[in-house]
Design a protein around this nucleic acid. Sequence first.
RNA 1: GGGUAGUUGGGUGAGUGGCUAAAACCAUCAGACUGUAAAUCUGACCUCAUUUGAGUUCCCUGGUUCGAAUCCAGGACUGCCCA
Length: 308
Amino acid sequence: MKKLKQKVIIICGPTASGKTDLSINIAEKINGEIVSADSMQIYKDMDIGTAKPSMEERKKIEHYMIDIINPDERYSVADFKCEAMKCIEKIVKKGKVPIVVGGTGLYIDSIYYGIEYNEIKTDLVYREKLEEIAKKEGLEKLYEKALEIDPIAIKKISKNDKKRIIRVLEIYHETGKTKTEQEAESIKKEKPYDYKIFAIDMDRKQLYERINKRVDMMIDQGLIEEVEKILKKYNTFPTAMQGLGYKEVVKYINNEYTKEEMIEKIKMESRRYAKRQITWFKRNKDIIWLNSSDKEKQMMEVLSKWMK
RNA sequence: GGGUAGUUGGGUGAGUGGCUAAAACCAUCAGACUGUAAAUCUGACCUCAUUUGAGUUCCCUGGUUCGAAUCCAGGACUGCCCA
């Protein structure tokens, strides 16, 4: 008989599909605490645009991995994985059930598949050097170099996908290993927990309507003011200003967009983001899809059997 | 009523006789994704077929031509100007 592993629940799904509400309701029912898996909610001072759970909600159920760094700091999946696992452990020690909730597919996967990241830090100087080469001599140059190093990995990467081409070179530069080797090593370990993964499935039209409405709400709640404050408080934004809604408001502030253009753009980009999220989660065949209209009931049914 | 400009695929909009199922952009759909990931990238997008392909298109009707989205005539609609 195998040793029983601690159970961990994962809830994912596209933006505006109702993950927050669902997770809080479930947490209340099963004595759980929430670990956010969201690449933007980790930032302090970015509340409205990232649709963080309210302070009231966070008082009711403890949330982890929210507001953990400043917008001018750098963060990565590796950091996330490491810290999120610690949070899960902490919750388990309290005798509660960890519930991982978020829309960042990469972050979810790092936990669900138990991907191991080694200690190595990204060499930003080298990255810049590669960027420079790409600019001056063309991306093909880097592509060819990457092809020599790791033909297996590069076969799956488009000639135009600068970030991934550079990453292949970076991995080799920093570890002496190819991306293919590194990835093979990263996944061989056994998963430390018994995961059950859910995603919210919502009719596309309905989801898009919710997204549109939510963007209007964010503007009403003061998204523009929030961005102005952040711009005053911090100087550099390695990734935070990639955030949906934030980059568009910045353009509005710089008079590149009218207010209407900005709002439409945010809505559109959010819809596209949701689309990409759905594609990501569809790939994971273990996911139990919950019908948005009675997701809580469906989920509780599965859980009651599984958690016995 | 007179003059004038225009009417192209879901949208914007190129195209002035064959190389055009019709540029480009956008939306939409589908996909990829392991250290920036709310990022980055790919494909499809008139219809049918599994590729080659076949069929039907550029407001309508008729005409010119071997051949028309493109030229001509009439009609419909729309914008602007003069009454």
